[in-house]
Amino acid sequence: MSREGGFRAVWPWLLFAWLALVIWAAFLWAPAAANFKGQSSRIVFFHVPMAWVATVAFLGSCIASIRYLRRRNMEDDIRAEAANSLGLTFAVLATVTGSIFAKIMWGSYWNWDPRETSITFLLLIYAAYFALRAAIPDPERRATMAAVYSVLAFVTVPFLVFVVPRIYWSLHPDTFINTQGKIKMDSRMFQVFMASLAGFSVFAGWLYSIEVRLERIRRRRQQEELL
């Protein structure tokens, strides 16, 4: 076995160990932030990476969609679809973790805080993306329509995420998304947070590559009928 092959066999285990360490540190090593109720601040180590992965995935999908529209290469459609399903999954996880935090801090799972509103509509947009795909039987047309919708959707996202919360008053902690452009966090918390962010990013990238390969195989099987 080559050295590279060896690394490929080992790295998922390294990732597993890394994430296990992150989870341990998140609960036992990092301190709980003082101005949050009880232990609730620890959710930041999971909630923010989920939201981050979802955002990156949606951005990636938007880029793949633009590439599809320019080059008409089905590979880009596969990437866009895989990135969107990953983004949707992580957006659901971000919603669930956020909702748990809302229950502890503000006493209710859901109260239409601007951030909750914007993520709900993000979920709606990307669920609509898959509804659209399901409604078009022609693969070439499906790829184009989905790509265009993806671009339209991505353009409305900044309005939801940045403009709307400025108009409505928000309860959401402004640790990361704030007007001063600074991160407000204890140093030990910050280390765990960055480790978690890195871990989940790699994990998501791995899931993404699996999904792309799977979809490639599915489509190749359909293509084989043509030969």
């Binding site: 039987p137 693969p139 359909q222 009928e225 043509l226 030969l227």
Partner: peptide, 12 residues
């Protein structure tokens, strides 16, 4: 030329 819709190969 070949054309496929989801469940059907029209021609190839």
């Amino acid at each position: 030329l070949a054309k496929r819709f989801d469940l059907r190969v029209v021609f190839r």
